[in-house]
Design a protein around this nucleic acid. Structure first.
Lengths: 204, 186
DNA sequence: AGTTTACTTTCCAAAGC
DNA sequence: GCTTTAAAAAGTAAACT
């Protein structure tokens, strides 16, 4: 009897240590990404839900923690791309993406895809462009999305191309390389999205 | 005008069968020309047929998986070739082993562009998976027929998981009528 | 700036780790 | 869960020209 009791305490302690570790990892990654406390709280709530629904069995704590943070950022309307969360995580992009999709499905998070516009403020401030460029980029995103160009495209690449185009239109040119770096996409992607968007705006 | 059903094309058929005899894959690998066998990596021996093109995975148990065929007829033709090759190696092969189609992959075209964001909301976020950052296709699971459809912005589709060619036709019909009901086609 | 190749997703069977 | 096989869709990345 005593053995069973000790075992229960052991597993309970282990479980709490794991939860502590997960929450501290969420905190560490959130700080590294520079997201507000509200995001950490949302991510922690999602993690606890995943824990109570027993979704962590067979998965790494780090992977689940990272996925919850990724989901939390999106729910709060200040998304970080998978590329960005992978940079501050100890697990790979593929595992984070898979774990995120699994958690989102099981917890019925019903997440809408990230809106490219949500990336504009941060990317623009990283690039140190004016408010005018920011507004123009949003205008380009709205117009080209309305014309159906967004389907299937990555939100970061779409936002990056719009910012690049806006910087040209506002005579505050940023190079494709500069925009590609802050958005974590390649110059080829910016060129491809840029061509379509310019055409959609009737600016070619 | 064109019925999307008429654009359906079978891209891949996966089927399983068995010769009813255990095999020594090591010796089959020696005698069968073009056979790839690396038991450390995978327990099956890979044998490719040219006409029709397919890849057969042959196992120690005598069970065989055939992939890559473009029709169910091609599956039978490919496996007939595999059976004959094994017989040439003095291996007993049942008269005509049962061949079971396990999966059919199909492509189709709705003929118009799709707004995947609107479709995701229209079909219900709980029923679909759409993560454009990870993959450009929207994943839609149907209950009847039990298949999975990938919808793309171009209006092209991939339907997989079906066991008979009609599954893809029924799936396309359902998808078209659902999108029409939602006013997301045309 | 644009090309090629490779990888992402979905499905399924097989045997074994 | 993974390993291997095949195939399509379209986007993106890495490596080149």
């Amino acid at each position: 009897r005593l053995r069973k009791w000790q075992e229960r305490i052991r597993t309970k302690d282990a479980g709490e240590r794991n939860l502590q570790f997960a929450l501290s990892e969420i905190d560490r990654m959130a700080s590294a990404l520079g997201v507000p406390r509200s995001v950490r709280e949302v991510a922690s709530v999602i993690y606890r839900q995943a824990l109570s629904e027993d979704l962590i069995r067979g998965r790494s704590i780090e992977g689940v923690a990272t996925s919850c943070l990724y989901a939390g950022c999106r729910q709060e309307g200040i998304p970080r791309s998978l590329e960005e969360v992978t940079e501050v995580s100890r697990v790979g992009k593929k595992e984070i993406g898979r774990t995120y999709r699994y958690i989102a499905k099981e917890l019925s998070l019903e997440m809408k895809p990230a809106d490219p516009k949500e990336y504009v403020p941060r990317f623009c401030s990283d690039l140190e462009v004016s408010e005018e460029v920011k507004m123009k980029a949003i205008e380009i995103i709205d117009e080209s999305a309305e014309q159906g160009l967004l389907s299937g495209k990555s939100p970061t690449g779409f936002a990056a191309a719009a910012i690049y185009a806006a910087s040209l239109l506002c005579n505050e040119k940023k190079t494709q390389k500069e925009v590609a770096e802050v958005a974590q996409v390649t110059e080829v992607t910016i060129r491809n999205r840029y061509q379509e968007q310019i055409e959609a705006m009737g600016l070619n | 005008m064109t019925d999307p059903k008429d654009t359906i094309n079978i891209e891949n058929v996966v089927a399983s069968t068995g010769i009813g005899q255990e095999l020594d894959l090591q010796s089959v690998a020696m005698d069968l020309e073009g056979a790839d066998y690396d038991p450390e990596q995978f327990p099956g021996l890979v044998y490719r047929t040219q006409n029709p093109k397919s890849a057969a995975l042959i196992f120690r148990s005598g069970k065989i998986v055939c992939t890559g065929a473009k029709s169910t007829d091609d599956v039978h033709e490919s496996l007939r070739i595999v059976f004959d090759k094994l017989r040439e190696l003095q291996i007993q092969v049942n008269e005509d082993p049962e061949i079971v189609v396990q999966n059919i992959v199909t492509s189709a075209d709705l003929g118009r562009n799709l707004n995947l964001n609107a479709i995701a909301i229209g079909l219900g976020l709980e029923n679909i998976e759409y993560e454009p950052e990870q993959f450009p296709g929207l994943v839609y699971r149907l209950d009847e027929p039990e298949v999975v459809a990938l919808l793309f912005g171009s209006g092209k589709l991939v339907i997989t998981g079906g066991k008979k060619p009609e599954d893809a036709e029924h799936a396309v019909d359902k998808i078209v009528s659902r999108l029409e009901d939602l006013g997301l086609l045309e």
